[in-house]
């Protein structure tokens, strides 16, 4: 047996602890650090993200500017932190709103079935027919791009998947004996939904929320990149990437550093979400 196959075999049997370090703890630390920096950005000794230093345009990383400066001589590190603030704000509130609406639609349609269910399924089909970025772009451009509008638009795009998950898990619980027992004791539908079904499906539903966060952060980045996200001078990761793109052959760091931050954040959210999901979620084929 060659060394390589031996090595491969050893890698194939990664002990669970080592596995958890890479797929759970490192991503969790990354997200926590980013979160802390984003929340306390105003207190940290960062450069002003709006202030241009015209003596230092497109500087590479140095002790003075950690990650360098952009086309207008603004500190990239500080802009990344403030840009992540926009991304994470939208990436937190939009999935939460989408989850609440989806949870409601999913429970109600999965419990009452019949006409109501067809109506909800139809509604989902309709939302899905509009490509998410296209839908968001149109609404944002005409309604004005602000963080609030961004949150509203992106929570709409996360309704279909949330509804499907909630509906699938409601369907499995609605037929269980404890629901029947509650009915037999004379519990009202509302009480069954609130006390019997919701507590059972809320945890699996929450397990998906990190995945939705990562998707929404990606969409927010794409919108900002296309110039329809939160308008400048507010820093956004997508906006920074778009601004650096024309100079990509001479100063790739202006484009790639924010892209790397965005990538690592989304990757971390995906990894943590996947770990969470594999522990509590419903079977994916049931959706």
């Amino acid at each position: 047996m060659t060394n390589i196959t031996k090595f491969a075999q050893r890698l194939g049997n990664i002990p669970p602890l080592v596995n958890a370090i890479f797929t759970l703890w490192i991503p969790a630390v990354w997200i926590s650090c980013l979160l802390a920096m984003v929340i306390f950005a105003d207190l940290l000794p960062l450069y002003d993200p709006f202030e241009s230093d015209f003596t230092a345009l497109k500087v590479r990383g140095s002790p003075e500017f950690w990650l360098g400066t952009d086309v207008l001589g603004r500190d990239i590190f500080s802009r990344i932190i403030y840009g992540s603030r926009t991304s994470l704000t939208v990436g937190f509130f939009a999935p939460v709103c989408g989850m609440l609406i989806g949870l409601f639609l999913g429970i109600v349609s999965g419990y009452y079935r019949g006409r109501l269910e067809s109506l909800v399924v139809g509604l989902i089909d309709i939302i899905l027919a509009f490509p998410n970025i296209v839908l968001a772009m149109c609404i944002l451009f005409f309604a004005g791009a602000s963080i609030v509008n961004l949150i509203i638009v992106l929570s709409i795009t996360s309704i279909p998947a949330n509804t499907r998950i909630a509906r699938a898990s409601t369907l499995t619980y609605a037929k269980r004996d404890f629901v029947l027992a509650a009915r037999a004791q004379g519990a009202s539908h509302l009480r069954i939904l609130w006390r019997e079904i919701l507590p059972n499906i809320i945890l699996p539903q929450m397990a998906y929320i990190l995945s939705f966060m990562s998707i929404i952060i990606m969409i927010e980045g794409s919108l900002a990149f296309l110039g329809v996200g939160v308008p400048p001078p507010t820093p956004t990761l997508g906006g920074m990437i778009a601004q650096g793109f024309p100079d990509i052959n001479t100063d790739p760091h202006i484009t790639f550093l924010p892209a790397l931050f965005l990538f690592l954040t989304v990757l971390s959210l995906n990894l943590i979400g996947d770990q969470l999901r594999s522990r509590v979620a419903v079977r994916e084929s049931a959706i």
């Binding site: 990509i248 790739p252 892209a259 990538f263 989304v266 990757l267």
Partner: peptide, 24 residues
């Protein structure tokens, strides 16, 4: 595990970042 890890990396990359990297 290798291929699954690679798919994970691609799932985390928005289309515009992949496009930019390819262009670069």
């Amino acid at each position: 595990k290798c291929i699954t890890t690679i798919t994970f990396a691609f799932l985390a990359a928005p289309s515009f970042i992949i496009a930019i990297i390819l262009a670069f």
